[in-house]
Computed example of a mutant assay.
Amino acid sequence: MYQRILLAVDGSQSSDLALSQAILLATATGAEVKALFVADDSDAFFDVAYFDARALMESIRAFGRKVLTEAAGKLETAGITHTTQLVEKPVAPGQISATIVAQADAWSADLIVLGTHGRRGVRRLLMGSVSEGVVGKSSRPVLLIRSEVEG
């Protein structure tokens, strides 16, 4: 069964739901959980002539550390053996899904768990779908946890 669960987190409601499911699975199977946050600024669009790229990335990293600390606290409370990892450089800019799959492969995960935002229509086309990319790129089982559909 599942002994190594890679949990991709991003601080969203669907990510919190995915964490809850990972805890349930890990409790049932005795699995270890690795919580992963991929820091990537390539989705940021700016209509201004100047922005501080270093400050933006530090802000993303700080947010990622906060999300991982919160996930670790919940895993600890549940008695789950766990680690966390902040990936500061995706395999390529904008390739969060490929980065998640590469990390799952490198860690020999038995299962990838992540939330999906339920975007549809133009928002999905513009923003893409990390979860869809993970499913398409991974040879490992993937458990998608869907939150309420975004408006």
Rank of each mutant, 00 (worst) to 15 (best):
L126H: 09
K34W: 06
S14V: 12
G118H: 05
D105I: 10
K66R: 01
V142S: 06
L114N: 08
R119Q: 14
L56F: 04
V113A: 00
G151Y: 08
V87R: 05
Q95V: 01
T83M: 09
P93Q: 00
S147M: 02
V149I: 12
I80H: 02
L7M: 10
V142K: 01
M57D: 13
M1P: 14
I96T: 06
L25Q: 10
V38L: 10
V9M: 08
A92W: 00
G64Y: 07
F63G: 02
D40H: 01
E150D: 07
V101E: 13
A55W: 03
P93N: 02
I60T: 09
L6F: 06
I5V: 14
Q95E: 12
I80W: 00
V113G: 04
R140L: 15
G151Q: 05
L125R: 14
L75A: 03
E148R: 07
V38I: 15
Q21G: 04
K34A: 10
R61C: 08
S139T: 15
E70F: 01
I112K: 04
L86R: 02
L86M: 05
I60W: 00
V142A: 06
D105Y: 00
R54K: 15
S20M: 07
F45S: 13
S42R: 02
R4A: 10
R54F: 06
V142G: 05
S108G: 05
A28W: 06
S59E: 14
T77E: 13
I5S: 03
T83A: 12
V33P: 04
V134F: 09
L125C: 06
R120W: 03
L75M: 11
P90G: 00
Q3C: 08
R124T: 09
P141G: 07
R140T: 10
I112Y: 02
K66W: 01
Q21P: 11
V67I: 09
V87G: 01
S138I: 15
V101K: 02
A98W: 03
R123P: 11
Q85A: 10
A8G: 11
Q95I: 00
L143D: 09
A78M: 12
L86P: 03
P141Q: 11
L86S: 02
A62R: 12
